[in-house]
Amino acid sequence: MKKLFLIALTTFCSIYSFGQSKNTVTFQAEIANRNGDVIYIKDNKNKTIKEIKINDKGVFKDTFEIEKEDFYIFFDGTEYTRLFLKNDYDLKLKMDAKQFDQSIIYTGKGAAENNYLAQDVIKEGDVNPEKLVALSEEDFKKMTDEKKLTEETFLDKSSLDKTFIEIQKKNILMNIKGLQKYYNESKAVQKLNNATAPTFNYVNHKGGTTKLEDLRGKYVYIDVWATWCGPCRGEIPFLQKIEEKYHGKNIEFVSISVDVQKDFEKWKKFVSDKQLGGIQLFADNDWNSDFTKSLNINSIPRFILIDPAGKIVNADAERPSSPELQETLNKLLN
């Protein structure tokens, strides 16, 4: 699933059901290319309230009781989606786990609310972070005000469940606050561009320590990551290709782990097992290291590009998986 913001989603298909109690939810699904043999229904505190086994055809059906009508999380072991459940729902889902959000289709009682959630996740994933941050404060406020008005007006005119509408309106406000926080933080990071980069002096996987000043005279592309970070690991194959393509050019590739100190050996083993290239460093105080704090790093992966004089070219540079990164490096190195 995509990242600007925090999300989760759902799945089902048909099998017939007999007289269902109003005190239970019937949930059935047909999942192509399933990610596992069990799906988990979790509450908003990430507590599992129900585990449902999937057969070898990707089909399941279960009936269970929930404490209250509310939003829940559907987790298939790899991907998440949001659900809205009531105790008289008879919900059917059909999906392809390889496509996940884009393939989700609900039918049955409760389908309207849950199809809304599935489409809402796709819309949020389509938000372009770069275009968002490029907006002036006035245009950003106008955009978020219009977004809030449009979404709330749709809900008010819909025939969706009243409790669902009430909760979703709160989620809309939380999402707007999340966008505002992202916008503010991104603007603060932009102000770091062209400033002198904060220094570091970290343990090198190959032995000894390496400080930023050791790399003067070359461009430095820094990857701030951690072994526990899925999106960070997802960028590794792309980073390896970038390192290979620009080998011998006037650039150093530096990966700084913000794993906690107790995971130092885990980090060392990970770097060795995965045969990670570039300069592999371990931050002295994980998230609280002076380098990460100076660059307002509060989420990872984060990439920073520094010029040969030690000035920040981009404090939030393109990811290795982004074609724009190669365009940037080609302009600087060729």
Rank of each mutant, 00 (worst) to 15 (best):
G77Q: 13
T78V: 15
T78M: 13
E79G: 04
Y80T: 03
Y80R: 09
T81E: 09
R82M: 10
R82Q: 11
L83R: 00
L83G: 04
F84Y: 14
F84S: 03
F84M: 02
F84R: 01
F84Q: 00
L85Y: 02
K86L: 05
N87S: 08
D88V: 06
D88M: 06
Y89A: 11
Y89H: 09
L93M: 12
M95R: 10
M95I: 09
D96N: 13
A97Y: 02
A97W: 02
A97T: 04
Q99P: 04
Q99R: 07
Q102A: 15
Q102C: 04
Q102T: 07
S103N: 06
I104H: 05
I105R: 10
I105S: 12
I105G: 06
I105K: 11
T107Q: 09
G108Y: 10
K109E: 06
K109H: 09
K109W: 03
G110S: 09
A111Y: 09
E113C: 10
E113K: 13
N114F: 02
N115Q: 08
N115A: 07
Y116D: 00
Y116E: 00
L117S: 05
L117P: 00
L117A: 00
A118Y: 02
Q119T: 12
V121N: 01
I122E: 01
K123H: 12
K123M: 08
E124D: 13
G125I: 04
G125T: 11
V127I: 15
N128C: 14
N128K: 14
P129V: 13
P129A: 08
E130Q: 14
K131T: 08
V133G: 11
A134I: 07
A134N: 12
A134V: 07
L135C: 07
L135P: 05
L135V: 06
S136I: 12
E137K: 15
E137V: 03
E138T: 12
E138F: 05
D139Y: 07
D139Q: 11
K141V: 09
K141H: 08
K142W: 09
K142Q: 07
M143L: 14
D145S: 15
D145G: 12
D145E: 15
D145A: 15
